[in-house]
């Protein structure tokens, strides 16, 4: 049962990254869209994510609940030493979620829209930034449980080049995912704009990815060894790179669905490569200690109950979620009633 729980944990993280990430990305794209086109971008985006956006963000809750029920030591350690970025992440989540709904459901459309829009786009940028910083901090080995002063314990645990680089890499990936997703949603005449955006964001992502390697060198994080030191991670990285070439080739050739699969595949491979290199460790601490998913788990009775809850829950959730995606894919939302 422990492996079922761990599988759901990684599935939750992956799906949050793909689906929630594409949502964040839509806001990031809006942030970098020329004023001339912004209204259209907004409409396309709303039609694409409106019905599913609440569900997309549930994966984070699933992952966090699995952590605090199944792996309380990991949850507690992150909560203590990454308190500050977690709070900033939360502020991003609350600001973004409410601004998205407020701007749509405000009965009067006036200058308040500008406020909602600003909050929405900036928090769409900041939330994945801090998500990436938190993820980077978890594996960077900077969390110091022996630290005796505030800065070492609560600030330098997350504020260093490596985690910041991972943060920007995450932002770029989210934007890239969203651009690819929106290509398939946009109307004919807008498609070119999203293809362009996807291309630019893809280049930005590759550059940020390179910066992550540089930062890893600077901070002494053995990233190269993680990614190329074992067969699975190595293969995943190679596949991601190859599929990137294919994606560039297909971009602009009107293969919306194939592009989505490729983009999702790349992100999955990146997460697989890094996850596999560390498994079963989830958090690396300063001084070489680590918190392992196979050593810090809750007692067996809890893991069994949690595993069953997840399995039974997914029997309800997955078909309903699939039908939700399916319904709003096949019946275009453009003519929906308010």
């Amino acid at each position: 049962m422990l492996y079922v729980v761990i599988a759901f944990l990684f599935l939750g993280i992956l799906l949050y990254f793909l689906l929630g990430g594409a949502d964040f990305g839509a806001g990031i794209i809006e942030l970098f869209t020329h004023r001339r086109n912004i209204r259209k971008t907004r409409t396309t985006m709303y039609h694409a994510i409106g019905p599913i956006w609440e569900a997309n963000h549930m994966w984070l809750i699933i992952a966090i609940v699995i952590l605090f029920v199944g792996f309380p030591k990991i949850y507690a350690t992150m909560s203590v030493y990454l308190h500050i970025p977690l709070v900033l992440l939360l502020i991003g989540i609350i600001a973004r979620g409410t601004a998205f709904v407020f701007r749509h459901y405000d009965a009067v459309v006036d200058e308040m829209q500008v406020v909602y829009n600003n909050i929405f786009v900036y928090s769409s940028f900041l939330t994945p930034l801090f998500l990436g910083i938190i993820a980077g901090s978890a594996v960077s080995g900077h969390i110091d449980v022996q630290a005796d002063n505030f800065l070492d314990a609560y600030v330098f645990s997350w504020l260093h080049w490596f985690s910041v680089a991972v943060g920007f890499f995450t932002v770029a990936l989210c934007g890239f995912l969203a651009a690819i997703y929106l290509i398939g949603e946009a109307e004919e005449q807008d498609r070119r704009r999203f293809v362009e955006k996807a291309l630019i964001l893809n280049i930005v992502a590759v550059v940020c990815g390179a910066l992550v390697f540089v930062a890893a060198q600077v901070e002494g994080v053995p990233l190269l060894e993680w990614l190329f030191g074992n067969a699975v991670s190595f293969t995943a990285i190679v596949l991601a790179t190859l599929s990137l070439a294919l994606l560039w080739f297909l971009l602009g050739r009107g293969q919306g669905k194939v592009l989505r699969v490729l983009a999702g595949f790349q992100v999955t491979m990146i997460l697989l490569a890094i996850g596999w290199a560390h498994f079963p460790d989830f958090i690396l601490l300063r001084g070489g200690d680590h918190l392992s998913l196979l050593e810090t788990q809750a007692p067996a009775a809890t893991i069994t109950a949690l595993g069953w809850a997840l399995v039974l829950g997914s029997v309800f959730i997955l078909p309903a979620l699939f039908y939700l995606f399916y319904s709003f894919q096949t019946k275009p939302i453009h003519d929906y009633e308010v």
């Binding site: 199944g70 809890t302 949690l306």
Partner: peptide, 29 residues
């Protein structure tokens, strides 16, 4: 508190996660 309590009182939270998820899906519909 959570380090000790999480595994004990986590059951309703994991079920609540499911219920909440279903609610979000149904609301979309």
């Amino acid at each position: 508190f959570m380090e000790h309590a999480g595994p004990i009182f986590g059951m309703p939270f994991s079920l609540e996660g499911t219920a909440f998820f279903i609610e979000a899906i149904a609301l979309g519909f």
